[in-house]
Simulated assay, not measured.
Amino acid sequence: MLIQIANLILQVLVSIVAGACLLRCYLQWLAFNLGAGQSKSIGAYILPLSNWIVLPLRRFIPSIGRFDLANCVAAYLLILAKIAILLFISGAPSIDISWLALALVDMLNLTLSGLIGLVFVSIILSWVGTGTQIQFLVSLLVNPLLASIRRVIPNFGALDLSPLALLLILQILQIVLGNLKI
């Protein structure tokens, strides 16, 4: 029971902070201005969640072009720490190399889960409101993924099947990752 409670708490906390690191990495790759000084910017939420771990890592880990490697390493380290704590609580033997692979699979799974959530939010916002700041941000995040699918799937007029195709692809990838974990 203690392990399940610890797993739940750690999963929520690590998902929020590591997710913020991964979102920050993706936004910076898209050349989005996080606007640290703007109160209504997404950066006002993401930066405080991730600065404490990302900024020290940036001293040692350089960016690769537009790809901010420090954000990915921060997310990976958070997930690795979660796994280590859970294995320590459960009384697992000493550190094993499989922990590193498990942390990588968990980070990829977190990324896929976040993308699935963004696709659902994008679909809902396309029905409800237009022109809002949140819809602009979600479109900025989802449209690069949908663009490649829209080149392959024919246009059916008002019916856009590309979000459905993207959801299928993301869920298939999650199944593959789930089987790698076993």
Rank of each mutant, 00 (worst) to 15 (best):
L55M: 05
A74S: 15
I61T: 06
W52A: 08
I61F: 06
A74F: 14
L57Y: 06
A74L: 10
L78C: 11
L47E: 01
L78Y: 12
A70T: 03
C72N: 00
I83K: 05
P48D: 00
I53D: 01
C72L: 13
Y76L: 13
R59L: 13
C72T: 04
D68I: 10
R58G: 09
R59K: 15
I83E: 11
F67M: 06
S63A: 14
K82S: 14
I79Y: 03
I83T: 13
S50R: 02
K82V: 06
G65F: 08
A84H: 04
L55G: 00
L47G: 00
N71R: 11
A70P: 03
L47F: 01
I64P: 04
L78W: 10
I83P: 03
I53N: 05
W52L: 10
L47H: 00
S50H: 08
R58S: 13
N51A: 14
N71A: 15
R58Q: 14
I79N: 01
W52Q: 00
L78F: 08
G65I: 10
Y76P: 07
S50E: 09
A70E: 11
A81G: 14
K82I: 02
I85C: 05
A70Y: 10
I85Q: 03
L86W: 05
G65H: 10
D68S: 12
L69N: 05
I83D: 12
I83A: 12
I79F: 05
L69G: 06
V73H: 02
L69T: 13
L47I: 11
L69R: 11
I83Q: 09
Y76N: 10
W52K: 02
V54A: 00
I64Q: 14
A81R: 12
I61S: 06
Y76K: 06
N71S: 15
A75D: 03
A81L: 15
L86G: 05
L80Y: 08
N51K: 12
N71F: 14
I79C: 07
A81T: 14
D68L: 11
A81M: 15
L86F: 08
I85G: 04
L86H: 00
V54C: 04
P56Y: 08
L80E: 08
Y76E: 12
I61H: 11
L80I: 08
W52R: 02
L47A: 00
A75R: 01
A75I: 04
I64G: 07
I85K: 01
L47M: 02
R66F: 13
L80N: 10
V73L: 07
A81C: 14
I79E: 05
L77P: 02
A75P: 02
I64Y: 15
I85T: 09
L57W: 03
L86M: 09
L49R: 00
L80V: 06
L69E: 09
S63E: 03
S50K: 03
A84T: 13
C72M: 09
A70V: 11
F67Q: 01
W52T: 05
I53C: 13
L78V: 08
N71D: 15
A70I: 10
L55F: 09
L86Q: 04
R58M: 14
I53H: 02
L80G: 04
N51M: 12
L77S: 04
I61D: 04
A84K: 03
R66D: 14
S50N: 05
L55N: 13
N51L: 07
I61P: 06
A81S: 15
R58T: 07
S50D: 01
I64L: 15
F60N: 11
F60P: 06
N51F: 12
A74Q: 12
I85A: 09
C72P: 03
I79S: 00
S63K: 11
